[in-house]
Amino acid sequence: MRRYVLRRLLLMVPTFLGITVLTFSLAMLAPGDPFQLDLETAGLGAQAVAQQRVQRGLDAPIPLQFGRWLSRVVRFDFGRSLIDQRPVLDKLAEALPRTALVAGLALLLGFGLAVPLGVVLATNQKRRWARAVELLLLAAWSVPSFWLAVLLLMLFAGPRYLPLFPVQGLADGGFVLPVICLTWPTLVIATRQVRSAMEESLCQDYVKAARARGIPERRVIWRHALRNSLLPVVTMFGLHLPHLVGGSVAIERIFGIPGMGLLAFDSIGTRDYPTVMGVATTMALVTMVSMLLVDLAYGSIDPRIRLERAG
């Protein structure tokens, strides 16, 4: 097991390099210039723009720029933003906790509700109310998050109905509405995943055998069937983990949360290469660690996977 983890950790190095090379190249090759201002103030002359490019080392060949960037990153120095001149690490440190709080609560809430709901739906699939709930979930799946966000903002933050929450920011319970918006899609898709995995498990021979041995139905469902249904859910959970640092541009914009989504969106739009790379690197690391955690979780859920690795 230790060797397996070590091997996976070592594999992360070339993967990380590959991701960063690709991201850096795409960012640098995209048309545009970080030294532009907004449309109406394009008055900064071409000479001044060229001078700033030279001062920032952006006139060097891309491989050389990447080498410089990498040599700083290994010392945990992500450089300074080309737009506001602040250290990229400071910007990440401000945005990351906000996004992680909202996305983390949404993830826990979404999967926390999806598992019992999926099990209940799978074990009551022939009941009329269960079908109605499924239909509702299907309808909910088609509701765009940003639309829900606008609706919730109007109903529960605006002055006309129930102004329970602030319009902007996370303080004073401001995180509740964005968490609901982000929970919604996770809840719907995870519930459907759990339900279908459970339906499949409940038809398996080992479940029939457990019932034949007289094990109580509750134990059969929650101990035997559910455990085997969790593999795809764990995969999905792992795939959702990067959302903790990715953020959602629309939700963050509507609720005025300066998180990772807006930081990424704005820095891409302004060609703020150091910030783009800071966000991309953070996401790459979290994604790779998430994948590793998922693989390790597989082993603890399914002994066969552990055996294959041992073999």
Partner: peptide, 14 residues
């Protein structure tokens, strides 16, 4: 700093 004009209008009305 409120980028979203709809949200800003809600805050203004409030």
């Amino acid at each position: 700093f409120l980028k979203d004009e709809g949200a800003a209008m809600q805050a203004f009305e409030k």
